Simulated scan of single mutants.
Amino acid sequence: MWSAYGGFTLDAMGVQLYAFILPTLLGLWGLSGSRASTLAAAALLAGAVGGWAAGSLSDRIGRVRILRVTIAWLAVSTAFCGLANSYNEFLIARIIQGVGFGAEWAVGAVFLGEVAAPAARGRTIGAVQSAWATGWLFAAATTSLALWLLPANLGWRAVFFIGLLPAIWIFCLRMRLHEAVDHGRSARVASWHGIFARPMIGRTVRGTLLATGTHGGYWALATWWPAMLRIERKMSLGQSTVYFAALVGGSFVGYYLSGWVSDRYGRRVTLATFASGGVATVLATTLLPLSPVAFLILSACLGLFALGIYSSVGAVLIELFPRQLSGSGLGFCYNLGRGLAGVGPLAVGSSIGSMGIAHSIGLYVTVAYALVLLATVLLPETRGSELGTMAAPG
């Protein structure tokens, strides 16, 4: 459990550092909105490849072996970002980082799904998924501290090296991990393209739709929210950190609440409730003239809905597929959805000139959560499903 929590924390921190150093890079490098969005989208698109490839490979040779590789890849590639001296170098580093970013969550989530009891799978995934909020908070805190202590041209680089030592500790923990099931037997009947065979293709499409909507809403927020606080709301670095901490604090509650509700009342009810709540709160925070106190409270509510929904998404994607296809299925749906969601940050960046950051966020997050609601109608209820095996096609 701790190796998964630690890995998810570094995963979140490493990829989210970009959003927090973005206001600094906009000034130092003179990045346009479209170029800044491309750097965000590149990691997401690379994550789609890394997640599917790692998930498929883990179906064949086991989750633990892949998890040892992903944590090392993630730490080293994140450090590469801090060495970039030009836009093109940073873009390449973000692509390499994105591969490890997608692989770590995809394989880690399936491993958790295999060790968790079916009746508590939502709560188990929710508890470990809260590591994303921990990593997000670490990214905000370390960036604020580095930019306060160091010159801007050094501070933004320093933050990308912070995860190296924790990664060594997590790697050592994973050297003592054992597989939850024997994957050697499954590998003889499973195939990476089994998720596209007739019995599975419908679930693959619906799972991808769910992941695209969930990621689309989150990444539009995560990429541009810090910049919106600093640029449009004219907050200082310290003030923006407080408001962002409220959003992250709300997400902690959301992860646990979503996991509990999904185990008790079902995945579909939870998805619909959290997506609707996300739409309501993002429209309120981006369209209404709120007082500082009201904005702070609604920021926490936005974090609860926008991040909490992931606890249910992870459980659904694990339960949609038989065990010998779960790595490939979750890896493909979750990470292709994340890759497609790269359109969100790009769309926000291209709309800033005409709509402003806040209104652009509100529009594209609403569209994304509408996709989640559509997917919820189409998906079967999977609460309490056993991760059984079947004669996997192809």
Rank of each mutant, 00 (worst) to 15 (best):
L283F: 04
L74D: 03
F244R: 01
G155M: 11
S37P: 09
L298D: 04
W224H: 10
T124S: 14
K234Q: 15
N88S: 13
M175F: 11
A190Q: 08
V110R: 02
L10V: 05
G353S: 11
A106P: 04
R185D: 15
A375G: 08
Q324T: 13
E319K: 00
G51N: 12
L373R: 09
L307V: 09
E381C: 11
A275V: 13
I309D: 09
T142H: 00
L210C: 10
G62E: 02
T223F: 07
A391L: 13
W136M: 14
R198S: 13
I71V: 14
A187W: 07
T208I: 03
T382R: 01
L340G: 09
R35L: 14
G47W: 00
L22W: 02
S56A: 15
V110H: 02
A315F: 07
R264V: 06
A109T: 15
A368I: 05
V76Y: 10
V316E: 14
G55A: 04
H178K: 10
F161Y: 09
W225G: 01
G47M: 02
Q16W: 02
A140F: 01
I297T: 12
A103I: 03
G249L: 08
G82F: 00
T286N: 05
A306P: 00
F274G: 06
G14E: 00
Q324F: 05
R268S: 08
S291A: 12
W192Q: 10
L39T: 05
L154Y: 12
T270L: 01
A391I: 09
N153H: 11
H178L: 08
W52Y: 15
A358G: 03
P23E: 04
A300R: 07
V99R: 02
G202S: 14
E89C: 06
A109F: 06
G202N: 11
V348M: 11
S34Y: 04
G202F: 11
F252G: 01
G254S: 09
G259I: 07
A19P: 09
P118H: 06
R94C: 14
G100M: 03
N85Y: 15
F252K: 08
L26D: 05
G217K: 10
T38Y: 02
A222D: 03
D11Q: 15
G356F: 02
W156H: 01
C333S: 14
S86F: 14
I66T: 02
V248T: 11
T286F: 03
L336K: 00
E381Y: 08
L150M: 12
N85K: 05
A306I: 11
F295D: 01
V316M: 15
V282P: 00
